[in-house]
């Protein structure tokens, strides 16, 4: 059977010439569920990757396929399958709610549309279970309008909706950015449980490296529209190779009695070089060579690659197929 989702050399340049994502190849199959985190600074292309994968925007290079069919040319029937198989949870979900409908609508509609329950009561029970699993009280939430809920509550309803549908893939873009640590842990462990028990793949986009390390198996680090480093979380977080990943991990404030959070107050002001490595202007290890050429992904291990000339002794990945690196 063909892959659930297949991104082949997918890139996106917006009108006006803004390159938001460069050539990503990633395959997700139904029989090998994955839990992948995508991290990187603001504007690095994370949401663009999610929107491409969801068919919300068309790639400018390459194709995104759903079970072999080009996502941009699905028939109505296939689109309906896709909408069931692939669920999205977004950063600020306010726009997905219709302000004139009670929030119940976003939960009851999929139950009806995809015939998830045999009776109203069964549907209601499914919805209540999903709400509780993200720390919400059904009696407090149901019957309210979107503007009557906090951002964190609206966010959690979207997670509950994804849980309800039991899709094959959940794309979650900053799904818990507005909630506290305990709730974050609760919600992410329920996603993890879904992944393990139901074989659902999860793409978790986040600024929060510590939760990414805890729940994901693999991690993709984006920097200025390209993959800087990718591989197993243990390797990438514990032994980061790319100087950007090192900066990222070194910048995490630790919960410790030691105050070791020191460093640059302002980034270097120089513009990134056109031809060379995108990180060269901020990189402590940059050489002349880094300004002249763009580093490919060097594969240092089966499950670890870094796009940095410091690893030039490892073989370069010609196809840049990320899936081969990911657990």
């Amino acid at each position: 059977m063909s892959a659930l989702i297949d991104l082949h050399d997918v890139g996106k340049t917006f009108a006006g010439g803004k390159v938001a994502l460069e050539k990503v190849s990633l395959t997700l199959t139904a029989d090998q569920p994955r839990f992948i985190a995508v991290v990187g600074e603001s504007g690095s292309g994370k949401t663009t990757l999610a929107r491409l994968l969801l068919g919300m925007i068309a790639p400018t290079t390459g194709t995104v396929r759903y079970q072999g069919d080009d996502l941009q040319r699905l028939s109505a029937a296939r689109r309906r399958d896709f909408r069931h198989d692939v669920q999205a949870v977004f950063q600020d979900p306010y726009e997905v709610y219709n302000p004139f409908y009670r929030v119940d609508h976003v939960l009851t509609m999929p139950v009806r549309k995809f015939r998830l329950a045999r009776s109203r009561a069964e549907g209601r029970a499914l919805i209540e279970t999903a709400l509780r699993s993200v720390g919400l009280r059904p009696e407090e939430i149901l019957g309210r309008y979107p503007h009557q809920l906090s951002g964190g509550q609206r966010q959690r309803i979207m997670v509950a909706r994804a849980l309800l549908l039991k899709p094959k893939l959940i794309v979650a873009d900053e799904p818990v950015s507005m909630v506290d640590a305990s709730l974050r842990a609760t919600i992410l462990t329920s996603l993890r449980r879904l992944h393990e028990e139901m074989g659902i793949s999860i793409l978790y986009i986040t600024h929060d490296l510590a939760t990414a390390y805890q729940v994901a198996d693999s991690i993709i680090v984006l920097y200025r529209a390209a993959v800087a480093e990718a591989g197993h979380v243990e390797r990438v977080v514990k032994a980061p190779l790319h100087p950007y990943t090192q900066l990222l991990i070194g910048s995490i404030p630790r919960v410790s009695t030691e105050r070791d959070w020191v460093g640059e107050e302002r980034p270097a002001g120089r513009a990134p070089s056109e031809t060379g490595c995108r990180f060269a202007d901020r990189c402590p290890s940059a050489t002349e060579h880094c300004l002249l050429q763009t580093p490919p992904l060097f594969r240092v291990a089966d499950d670890h690659a870094s796009a940095c000339f410091l690893q030039r002794n490892a073989p370069a990945m010609t196809d840049a197929q990320l899936s081969s690196l990911l657990a």
Binding site: A181, A185, L188, T189, A210, Q214, V215, I249, I252
Partner: peptide, 19 residues
């Protein structure tokens, strides 16, 4: 205490749990 225990560790995987 439980809030602190729910914080994700960067040292070791597993054991993430909310209150």
């Amino acid at each position: 205490r439980m809030l602190i225990e729910s914080l994700p560790s960067l040292e070791q995987r597993g054991g993430l749990r909310g209150i």
